[in-house]
Amino acid sequence: MKEILKVENLCKKFNKEIILKDISFSLNEGETLCIIGPSGSGKSTLLRCINNLESIDNGKVIIDNNYLISYVKKLNKKLAQNINTTMVFQDFNLFPNMSVKENIMFAQQKALRRGKKEAEEIAIKMLKKIGLEEKQDFYPCNLSGGQKQRVAIARCLAINSKILCMDEPTSALDPELVGEVLKVIKELSKENKTMIIVTHEIAFAKEIADKIIFMDNGKIIESGKDVIDNPKNERTKAFLERFNYNKEAKK
C-alpha cells in the first residue's frame, strides 16, 4: 500500500507552552485514521498543522512523497492553499452569503478553475451522495447543524484532495443529528477515502478506523488498530474507562 502522509518529529509551541511534542506517524492511502484523546491534548492543533493553518516549530510533514512542510518561522499562507488536504471544521464554516450549491461550486471554480457546468455537475453529484439534493438552493442559515456539516463534507469532496481531515465533525451537533453525519463519514470510509478524523465518538472511531492514535498532553501515547479494544498504556486505559463509565451511566 502506498504511503500518503508521513509526519516526522513534529513540534509545536504557542508562545512558550509546548502543544505538540515530537509527533511521528504515517498513513497509507485509503486508510481512515482516528485521533482520540482528552480535550487540550493537541489533537486539533495536529490537524491544523497538517493543513498548514498553524506554523510548526520543528519536524516535517510529507504528503504523497513530494510535498513538504518543514519548520517555518512565520505561517506561509500560500502553503495553506495547497489542496493536498482539505478540512471539515467543528463549526462548519460554510460561506453564509452563498447557497448550498454555490458553497460547493465556489472553490472548484476559483481554485481548480473548473468550468461552471462541470463544477455544477460535481456539486449535484456530491449533494446526492450526502442526501441533500433538494436543498441545493437553500442558504446555510436555513439548514440544521447536521445538514450544514454534510454540506461542508460535500464541499471538501468536490475538491477531491488526497487527504480529508475532520476536526471533531460532530461535536457541535445535537445528539439527534450526529447519526446522519456519521453515516456519511462511514460511507466515505467504505469507499476508501483517505481520512484523518479527530473525534470524541469512541464507538464510531472503533467501527471505522483502520488506525487509531491516542494522544495526551501533546504526545502520541499509543497507536494501532486495537487501541480501543486492547489498550496497553495506563493513561489510555484510564481515558477509555471513563468513557465506558459514562456510557453505562447513560443506560
Binding site: L53, K78, A111
Partner: peptide, 24 residues
C-alpha cells in the same frame, strides 16, 4: 474559520476577501 476553510480549499487571500468577506 471562514477564511481558514476557504484557505484549505485552495483559495487565495484576494479571492477570500472579494467573494466571501466583503459581501458579508
Amino acid at each position: 474559520g471562514q477564511s481558514e476553510a476557504a484557505c484549505t480549499l485552495g483559495l487565495n487571500m484576494f479571492q477570500i476577501y472579494i467573494y466571501i468577506i466583503l459581501p458579508q
